[in-house]
Design a protein around this nucleic acid. Sequence first.
DNA 1: ATTTATTGTCTATTTTTTAGACAATAATAA
DNA 2: TTATTATTGTCTAAAAAATAGACAATAAAT
Lengths: 241, 241
Amino acid sequence: MHSLTEQNYIQQLSIDCVIFGYENQQLKVLISTLKFKGDFQVLPSGFIYQGEDVDEAARRILEDRTSIKDTYLEQFHVFGKADRSNRAFLDRLIELNPDLVILHQQQRQQYEWFTRRFVSIGYYALVDMAKVIPQKHEIDQSITWYDVRQLPILAMDHNEIVQKAIDTLRLTLDQRLSAFSLLPESFTMKDVQEVYEAIYDKPFARNNFQKKILDMNVLERLEKKFTGAANKAPYLYRYIK
Amino acid sequence: MHSLTEQNYIQQLSIDCVIFGYENQQLKVLISTLKFKGDFQVLPSGFIYQGEDVDEAARRILEDRTSIKDTYLEQFHVFGKADRSNRAFLDRLIELNPDLVILHQQQRQQYEWFTRRFVSIGYYALVDMAKVIPQKHEIDQSITWYDVRQLPILAMDHNEIVQKAIDTLRLTLDQRLSAFSLLPESFTMKDVQEVYEAIYDKPFARNNFQKKILDMNVLERLEKKFTGAANKAPYLYRYIK
DNA sequence: ATTTATTGTCTATTTTTTAGACAATAATAA
DNA sequence: TTATTATTGTCTAAAAAATAGACAATAAAT
């Protein structure tokens, strides 16, 4: 990794990613926990290289954490308050981790660079959790999936950012047909319904839900899925286009 | 105005404003024409001061050009391609205006600053054109309202930006109840319908349109408007809340 | 008083959404 | 082999919403 103080990044502009997954009827968000004393938890974030599209940068950050290349990813809001800064967060981190005392000139510069006011572009991604390969050798942070209803307190305004991402997801889900990105290649109609129920945190009527989804004309019906349960086997479906 | 090369602005981050107005059944956009040889037309743009919210900056830019303080203003998209730069635009401008030869050190620096890659945050505003007071002493640019269907070719990706703003406006108009911001304090139902027709570029059925708007429960009915026409006088309405 | 153009609103029709019902079926139990 | 059970897929009925058609009210001109 290059030095942050070099001019390879756009200054004072960052990307925060709200990476959604789905498991056990729960909508999840990927959270980074910093490996320092104190519970410092943040959204996966990063900066934009000079020669890089902002969208590319978001995709790179997503791939860095999940190994996933092609999935639903979309910009949803810019967080631009004048007091948006890592300073309070980093000062607290240094306070709880005295071994991190800043001595060297370069560390001082990094600290200054990192604690300036930042404008952040929020992106949200929808991924198939089963395809996520957490990076093995993350030095300073580890990642965990949290149920969106039980998020920990995150650094800075990251809880707000997640909330805004959920709001946007709910408003655009049907238009963008993005729910299927949370599921594996093939799935049952019940799976789709449970994804919707997790996202909107409310139940849907099965008969009408099935009609609505089929009327979208984006699902191909595959073979039946025999689960061993003592009842009619559901069909599997696949998202097309 | 401070020097651009000073650190008072966030570097490589700009705001482009799509300022919508409405007149004569036409949806209009405010365009700046630079006072140089060659037709250089751009969206009203600006930068963000270090101590300023991004939203504040957008509002400042809007007020600078229109004198309007309180009106509908909303962020809608970030334009972040790696090749987004004023360089081609500025080179062409210098080419056509040889008197602008860059000699001084400071001019050189300004040129470098201004022609770097920029990430731009798009905002759109909806204003009552009658309330707009164009700035009298604009040195290097003048503003004009254009029908959105007859926009000139704008610099950089500004035509794309306008299109994206229109798309967003159409998608969110009913939710945000923002159409009324294009009209004066009081207006007839016909005015509202014509605003909608200008925005969506399609006709609406009068009877059902009136019902839909009244069902929003955001209009107060005022006295009648006697136009002198030989027919029933329409009621005036006022947007509340 | 009659005519004209437009407005406000009502009702009928069509379409869409929601609710209710039931046959099909995969395994299990009798 | 034949009920039983739980769930799925789909149909129809009912309710709600959107669209289309109709008409009385009315402000000014004839």
